[in-house]
Design a protein around this nucleic acid. Structure first.
Length: 234
DNA sequence: GCGACAG
DNA sequence: ATCTTGTCGC
């Protein structure tokens, strides 16, 4: 039973990085999408950085549906392997997130990643990379657009507007909280846009950010604050 | 060439 | 993302 995730190779050049992304984008769209009624738990992943910018702290929280109770938390810190460059975010914090998810006792049915999935210049954001390498259905949930545009839409929670990029719909701007700025949702790996949006709305209570991502964000900041290097907790 | 640019 | 004070709003 080999459950170890494939490693995400850190590219030596931007051309190599683009080639990796193009291959992952093809694979992610080939994988059959999950159905939400086979999803019992949803995890969220996020990362924070040390003040000197040399260490990344990745965290993951697994929540049960439909009550959003925390089932498991996991985190891992490591040296930052890649500089921040828009479009190549996956190589910066993807490896740490993959390690954190891989160290969970039980793999989640679906993973929400802070960042984009298909709504990316090469249709392969961090959610796509992480999902493909872990073989877990993923959704990208971003606070800002990287590629494409969405027209303005209604202020009610649950309303949405497609993200268009170069003639195709690559994601959805979703109002998760009435009157607040939308979050930008896109399919990662083995995912469908409608399912992605449904998963985000199902895990969003009163906050703009889905509870699993919010909890992962909280953990990663706590880890940075307390200098914990590695741990798992139920 | 110019502007835009997840976290 | 991170460094930072006060401040506006629900």
């Amino acid at each position: 039973m080999d459950e170890r995730p494939l490693p995400l190779k850190i590219p030596a050049s931007l051309d190599e990085a683009k080639a990796i992304q193009e291959a992952i984008a093809r694979a992610a769209e080939t994988a059959p999408p999950v159905s939400l009624d086979e999803v019992r738990c949803i995890a969220g992943a996020d990362a924070s950085y040390s003040p000197d910018g040399r260490t990344v702290h990745a965290a993951v929280a697994v929540l049960g549906l439909p009550d959003l109770n925390v089932l498991e938390r996991c985190w891992v810190s490591r040296e930052v392997p890649f500089p921040y460059m828009p479009g190549f975010f996956a190589f910066r914090e993807g490896p740490a997130i993959i390690s954190a998810v891989g160290a969970l006792t039980r793999q989640p049915d679906l993973l929400l990643v802070d960042g984009h999935g298909r709504a990316h210049p090469r249709r392969a954001g961090i959610a796509t990379h992480v999902g493909f390498l872990l073989s877990i259905p993923t959704v990208g949930v971003a606070k800002q657009l990287l590629a494409g545009d969405a027209v303005e839409f209604g202020p009610a929670r649950g309303s949405s507007s497609p993200i268009w990029d170069r003639g195709e719909i690559v994601g959805m701007a979703v109002r998760t909280k009435a009157g607040s700025r939308p979050v930008y949702v896109s399919a990662g790996h083995a995912m469908d846009l409608a399912t992605a949006v449904a998963a985000v709305l199902a895990t969003t209570g009163t906050s703009r950010i889905p509870a699993p991502v919010r909890e992962a964000h909280r953990i990663s900041r706590e880890v940075r604050r307390s200098h914990i290097t590695f741990s798992v907790s139920p």
